[in-house]
Amino acid sequence: MKTANSWIDRHARLLFPLPAILAIVVLIVAPVVTNFVLSLYDYFVGGRAFFVGLENYQRAATDPRVWNGIKNTFYFTFTAVPLQLLVGIGIAVLFNRDFPGKGLARTIILLPMVATPVAIALIWALMFNPSLGVLNYFLETLGLERSLWVAQSSLAIPSLVLVDTWQWSPMIALILLAAMQGVPTEHYEAARIDGASGWQSFWHITIPGIRSAIVVALILRAVDALKTFDIIYVITEGGPGTASETLNVLAFKTGFQFFHAGYAATLLIFLMFLVLGIAVLLNAVRRRTT
């Protein structure tokens, strides 16, 4: 027994993290490697697979639909995330003070985040309907013109951004609210004594105080937004045409509808580097701010 114990003691450094390492290998490393290998094949599901080397990559680099997908991915992410940040800060500021019914209001505002994405996407799809949807009814009641929403190519992504913002602003608010409550109240008292306005104390105390939380929220949301699939697929299927087809949606269609598993794997490698790049970039920003 003694010898076994000492063996464990000597190798504790390796043994303790072993389960975690195994989990990472099985759940992350293995799929990524498999995916990379798959991306080197021309594999039509149900038919035979041929090794083609980097041909899929060459094809993807010159495929206008892939570039359209990348463009839409960026367009969606870089409109949705900043918008959510603004709305999220607003909500956090609101909930950082006391008012009657605050607990209830906070629960309600968090609901979009916990709802099933496919279910809410279906409901939004109904609301967007240009002829029967409730959104156009509201617009008309307000004396505004009807909109085609997702039925018009140029409005498809902005409409999806609206849904994503509705769903995910509460998460940003939650992160920022926690950070705001960590800002020492003495700072605000000192500022008030010095005659600072509410705006000034928000701008010079609150924002610097929650800066690192903002960056964390941005990283989480940006990485998530780049990979958005459910609401886009359910509401527009990437349409009209390819107007809202992100790289993720294109890869899904390529793999699971068109059955070109190899090419789909290639597209997902593209997406992986895209997400990785943005995450590294934002992380560098975070290091500088803290």
Binding site: N129, P130, S131, R146, L148, A151, Q152, G239, P240, G241
Partner: peptide, 10 residues
């Protein structure tokens, strides 16, 4: 385009 409902691509 002429006689269909608005937003036919939907």
């Amino acid at each position: 385009r002429n006689y269909g409902p608005p937003g036919p691509t939907n």
